[in-house]
Amino acid sequence: MNPEALEALVVDRELGELSPEAADLLEAYLRLSPEARASAGAMAAAVGVARATVRNHPGLAPIPRPGPVPLPGWTSWLARAAAAVLLLGGGIWIGRRAEVGSAGIPAGPAVAATGSPAARAANPWARYQVAYDARRGAYTVARHP
């Protein structure tokens, strides 16, 4: 067995990814070869050190990369100006629609107050108000502010 294959098998064994039959064969091989046994011991120790290091240092977990690189100067300003125009236009349009349609429409259901932290942790939906609409066969979810 070449050293790389042996190391891979030892890592798999240490991580519980080796089948019992393969583990038995590996054990038998190691019994016959003191040199391989020493090498396997060093690799098993490395796995143990890696486990301890990862567990003791949360900072080693990769942080997802922040968003895409921002656009260069003038492009960025152009995009902001376009967004401002869209927001302004959209706001005026929505305002006019609301004025026309507001007469006689009852207010929607109020969103319940946020529960205590303990209550929120107790179930996955505590931060949301969930109502089932049988007619459409779907849930409507409102997130608490």
Binding site: N123, A138, Y139, T140, V141, A142, R143
Partner: peptide
Amino acid sequence: MTMELAPPADGIE
């Protein structure tokens, strides 16, 4: 914020 979801699968909780 509101949105519509499919009915929950059994056992999600």
